[in-house]
Design a protein around this nucleic acid. Structure first.
Lengths: 129, 129, 129, 129
DNA sequence: GTGGTCTAGACCACC
DNA sequence: GTGGTCTAGACCACG
């Protein structure tokens, strides 16, 4: 479970976990049918309350990404390829839109935005591939 | 005051206003020394509480973007060109970083991200320049 | 044993099985004295735990629908015709009451409910008789 | 707030409340934009924990029926007429389907089901109109 | 062992 | 005042 919590972040604990777990699922790093850690296990692992993990699992179940069976455990749900692709890029697209929106507010040109984006890419992706 | 509030957004009111007012200042759309509307005027205009506007002015004053003169009103502060340029692109860069970070989580390649970014640019900037 | 488990359903496993087995008995599809599969046979058949089947047999025995003879197996009990008729329609009536109750909550008229019911009947019973 | 809790029921508290509140909204008994009681008020009213009410509000917000604004309160969301109609009859239709399904299990004829349904209607709707 | 519900109580952010 | 998050801890139902 490569999930990392940033204590400093203003983002709610449950939200940080949700984002990362969702990413693991929709990017296929967790396969359909895979059994997740029990809420108690994950809580211990992430050093947070059971309730918080439970909320995460429940939210993702409501989104259709997880299935929980009482007495059994929590599993990655069957997701249609379409939905999966959509999910996967939705969050990224939204974030990109927010960034461009921010650029529009300060009257960035297309060229300026593109240059900034390249710089960020270089900085963030170096050493990764 | 081209400031627009999105009722639907989950973002706090004060934050939406701050972002837009800050952008107006650091992009030079509001010039140094310009007089801002009074707190209650702006509150009326945006249909929000004076407390909210007060907080916005206060925050931006703390950042050094605004200056309040007792009994006269609130003005755009004098900002060094360097600081201004930095300020201007900071928010955009941050947003772009968040987007790339989101992309990394779902294992986007550099090419995929670049393609998405171009699409977003085309969609958001069309008809604007 | 025409018993089908719906993995997707939120209803507990044991409950799904109970409902269907009970229906087989009170509708006479399993006759008095008929020998049921052993617990482990049925468990294997339904791909579920023996604990679950054990619970089902136990519950139905407590209701007087099954009878277990040590070392021989589990049989359909003798049930009076009266009790049988009552049992048979009880579950249906209860379900209908719940539906009408749901209708009352959203202020359905009698006509609206009747129309909906006819539609559901048409949909669910077509091609079956 | 005509919401009634049945202590005896096996149904979870939060679920009972959700069902009734949802019905009030989708049947138009609570109009768009209406301000709901604060979570603390409703908790006191229903003699349950704040957490339970909060969960209800949150679930209904996730369904798009409510909107909460921090520091302000919780409101009935704007719902398209289409969605509203669909929502309104969905729960009822589902319940009717379950009932007919139960009938099929015990081999009820169409006539038998219709007769039972009429009886239930007579019993449940008398004195109401 | 698993998940599901509910509690009391605390602290924070927003308006 | 409002909602939002998180905690510890209890008890129940399911397999």
């Amino acid at each position: 479970m490569p999930i990392h919590i940033n204590e400093q972040s203003a983002e709610p604990l449950y939200y940080q976990i949700e984002v990362q777990l969702r990413a693991l699922i929709v990017s296929g790093q967790l396969e359909e049918g895979a059994l997740l850690p029990s809420i108690r296990e994950l809580a211990q692992l992430l050093k947070c309350s059971v309730i918080t993990v439970r909320r995460v699992y429940q939210d993702l179940e409501n989104e259709g990404l997880l299935r929980t069976k009482q007495g059994t455990g929590t599993y990655v749900a069957r997701i249609e390829q379409n939905a999966m692709d959509r999910f996967r890029l939705d969050a990224v697209t939204e974030a990109l839109e927010a960034a461009v929106e921010a650029g529009k507010l300060v009257q960035c040109t297309r060229e300026e935005l593109t240059k900034l984006f390249q710089e960020v890419l270089d900085r963030k992706l170096e050493g990764e591939r």
